[in-house]
Design a protein around this nucleic acid. Structure first.
Lengths: 338, 338
DNA sequence: CTGTTAGCGCGTTCAG
DNA sequence: CTGAACGCGCTAACAG
């Protein structure tokens, strides 16, 4: 197809008007079967391929949605992305994918280019949702849903889990197993969901159990394996080492487990470890990791589904657009009774 | 922005023609600084946002490329995707991402919708490149590059590693460590790159070393952890168990390691394990996995870079467009001398 | 340096 | 059930 064949060429070839060709291409029922057939044949003969850009300009719909994601190479997010794409596909949308690394300026920038590209909707997965983000969202004429994040005031549609509760539940598992000296490897406290909220859950669980919070038992990591490892080394140098570690993410937990093992300690006999996420790797390490499962795929799928409803204006005023998906503790082998 | 403000509105507001607005928006130097300033102010005042769809129709360029990928939630591919997106971003392209699960019909389908969307280029990452694929590619007026695959006749631009050689090198490591009884956990032999080619490399290494190929020592898996585990169970029931296992992928290798350990065997003291890929997890298991590293990120980055050259017609006739990236064996702790 | 004028390929009234 | 005509918002010559 070196020369572009247009709807006009097809019309001429089939001996009808372009309006008719447009109708059959768009499955408009108001076409005589015989005419439809003629048109299809012409399309076949010419190898006609509809131009979605022209269609988009005329119809003001592109059937593509934008998704801004922190980092597609991170297994957490790639799982969410798969959920998004599957549902998008089901509703005949394509997705434009942009990594923004949780950096605000980049996030704002891609939001704007996505909007320029006239996406029919936007899925935002990022770090904090700041006032600037809200401003950017406001300039949008298409619906936006927050995916795996939420804004503080819950003014924007979103789907996420209850991070604080998830962390709380994880720490509860430890407490119910008799642990009192529980360390935490946290994420950045600037990160509202994976960082701050999970730390709050930890604090709350300790409080309720009447356990004093100790600064020495909290280290801030960057979600990755190595930082889990480093935090653990710190704990091991303490005069009295904790009997359990709660990591904000599985990766950090695995880093912790290995560092423990490398120092001659057994998990869970000597130290218990628990975390939140349930990435694939959690069931692939020894001991297998007890963790609170976050339904990544579903978060993606549900948020995309919500977005389709919003794009089709299927939601009525007052409909619930803040959805919290359930999490679940997965008992495996990294936690023992003290 | 509930009413759409167009280039025409900006022109009126600034007291210039739309051509001039177009020029400043597109950074055309032929505009008096003062005029430029007026236009920018008008843009600011009106909150004008260029419509990329209209621009695409008029200019026949969308600055977006399509990428068909087997499965974004698979860490191998998500790493490649990140490489693609980074370079795309650098050259101001966006990417439309489509999962096709290596299923031919789905691959063909998404190729067509991507082409309808008038992408400026296409990156194809899939299973086998069949005659049907070639036909679909031929209908394209935009360049296409195969990413982490290649067609049999090397007629289409591509970037990949030499899978056969990578497998060969892995098995060589085993042989040089004195192993003679080497099992393989293969991928599907229908899969040209990760399956068939890696199996060929295994065969060739054995042949050269004068080791007879034994059917019992080859199991076909599906690249995943569980199948590595199952294959290993099979090997353990053999009258004489192999002293080493070569897995076509890291995930299967890790499944093998754990199954070995669960059966009271030590890795690498009792059985050595090696594979190809070098996923993040490879350095996060105990023992850490010796493997042949495939530069996933680079494969993505280089293929995207190649695509930009093709899109800009920067490549001259006869330029090399089949690139093979180097692989490298990463010595870790899962292989021992026999 | 700036404005005028055609389309880009298609959806969508509105007649008939 | 079908066709004519307009316009979606913008780029790209071509004049001036």
């Amino acid at each position: 197809m070196t020369v572009t064949v247009t709807i006009y060429d097809v019309a001429r070839e089939a001996g009808v008007s372009m309006a008719t060709v447009s109708r059959v291409v768009n499955n408009n029922p108001n076409v005589k079967p015989q005419t439809r057939k003629k048109v299809f044949e012409a399309i076949e003969r010419l190898g006609y391929r509809p131009n979605a850009v022209a269609r988009g300009l005329a119809s003001k719909k592109t059937t593509t949605v934008g998704v801004v994601i922190p980092d597609i190479s991170n297994s957490i997010f790639s799982e969410v992305a798969r959920g998004i794409e599957d549902i998008a596909n089901m509703y005949h949308y394509n997705i434009i994918l942009c990594n923004a690394d949780k950096r605000k300026e980049k996030e704002i920038r891609v939001i704007n280019t996505l909007l320029e590209k006239q996406v029919d909707g936007l899925l935002f997965m990022g770090g904090a949702v700041t006032e600037e983000h809200i401003q950017a969202f406001k300039t949008s004429s298409v619906p936006i849903v927050l995916c795996a994040t939420a804004d503080e005031n819950n003014t924007i549609p979103s789907v996420d889990i209850d991070h604080e509760k998830a962390a709380y539940d994880a720490v509860q598992v430890l407490i119910q197993n008799g642990h009192r000296s529980i360390a935490m490897i946290s994420g950045s406290l600037q990160d509202p969901a994976n960082g701050y909220a999970r730390y709050q859950g930890y604090k709350k669980a300790l409080e309720e159990a009447g356990i004093a919070l100790s600064e020495d038992l909290v280290r801030v990591g960057n979600y990755r394996y190595e930082s889990g490892s480093e935090a653990t080394k710190y704990f091991l140098e303490l005069p009295q080492r904790p009997s359990a570690i709660f990591a904000a993410t599985d990766e950090m937990a695995i880093g912790a487990i290995h560092t423990l093992q490398d120092n001659g300690l057994r998990v869970p006999e000597d130290v218990s470890v628990i975390s939140v996420d349930n990435i694939r790797m959690a069931s692939m390490v020894r001991p297998t990791l007890t963790t609170v499962a976050q339904p990544m795929y579903d978060i993606g799928a549900v948020s995309m589904r919500l977005l389709t409803k919003l794009m089709n204006k299927e939601t009525k005023e007052g409909d619930l657009t803040q959805v919290i998906l359930p999490h679940e503790v997965i008992q495996r082998n990294s936690v023992a009774h003290v």
